[in-house]
C-alpha cells in the first residue's frame, strides 16, 4: 500500500498531507515567535528606561527591508500561480526573483548588524539590544531556511515538474506558505522594534 493523499486532497478534509503538515508547523512557529513577543512585552514593561527604536535603529533601512520582503511575498505567490497556469518559465522567473529579494534582505540586514558591531554595540548592551538581536537573528535564520527551500525548488527540485506537475505545485504552495509566514513575522517585528 502506498501513502494516500500525497498529491490529491482527502475528500472529507479537503487537504493533502503536506498542507496539513505545514500548517501544523506554522502553528508551532506562532507559539515560538509568540513567546518571544511575550518576552519583549515583559522586559519592556519591567524596564526602567527603554530606547525608542527610531533613536537607535536605522528606520530607512528597516523600511527598505520591509518593502523588499513584501515584494518577495508577491513574487512567491506569482511563482505558485505560474505552476497552476502550467507556465514553468513564469514559475522559474518569479521564484528566482523571490530568492534574489530574500538575499537582498539578508545583505541589508547584515549592513545593519555590521554598523552596530562597528560601534561596539553587541547583544549584551542591554535588554533592548538583547531582544533585537535575538528576534531578528531568529527571523534571519528563517529567511535562510526559506532561501534553501526555494533554491531547491528552483534548481534540482524542479525535475519533479516533468514527472508530476501537481505534486510540484503542491510543494511550491507549501514553500510559499512558509515564506509568507516569514514575511508575516517581519510585518510585526518591524514596527515593534523600529517604530515603538
Amino acid at each position: 500500500m502506498d501513502i494516500p493523499y500525497t498529491v490529491q486532497p482527502r475528500p472529507d478534509t479537503g487537504l493533502y498531507n503536506a498542507k496539513v503538515g505545514i500548517w501544523l508547523f506554522l502553528a508551532s512557529e506562532v507559539m515560538l515567535f509568540g513567546a518571544l513577543f511575550s518576552t519583549y512585552i515583559l522586559l519592556r514593561v519591567g524596564a526602567i528606561d527603554w530606547p525608542e527604536g527610531v533613536d537607535v535603529l536605522n528606520v530607512p533601512l528597516g523600511t527598505l527591508n520591509t518593502l523588499v520582503l513584501i515584494t518577495s511575498s508577491i513574487t512567491m505567490v506569482m511563482a505558485w500561480a505560474g505552476c497552476v497556469m502550467k507556465d514553468f518559465k513564469r514559475f522559474r522567473f518569479f521564484m528566482g526573483l523571490t530568492i534574489l529579494l530574500a538575499c537582498v534582505f539578508l545583505v541589508v540586514k547584515s549592513f545593519e548588524y555590521g554598523s552596530k558591531f562597528s560601534h561596539h554595540i553587541y547583544p549584551k548592551e542591554g535588554a533592548f539590544y538583547a531582544i533585537y538581536f535575538t528576534m531578528t537573528g531568529l527571523h534571519a535564520f528563517h529567511v535562510i531556511c526559506g532561501i534553501v527551500v526555494n533554491a531547491y525548488l528552483w534548481g534540482p527540485g524542479a525535475k519533479l515538474w516533468k514527472k508530476n506537475p501537481a505534486q510540484f505545485t503542491n510543494r511550491v504552495e507549501v514553500a510559499g506558505l512558509f515564506w509568507h509566514f516569514v514575511d508575516l513575522v517581519w510585518i510585526f517585528l518591524f514596527p515593534v522594534l523600529y517604530l515603538l
Binding site: M31, L32, G34, F133, T134
Partner: peptide, 15 residues
C-alpha cells in the same frame, strides 16, 4: 504547541 515557548526560552538562555 507547548514546546516552542521553551525552545524560545532555551535560545534566550543560550544567548
Amino acid at each position: 504547541l507547548a514546546f516552542p515557548p521553551l525552545e524560545a526560552a532555551g535560545v534566550m538562555q543560550l544567548m
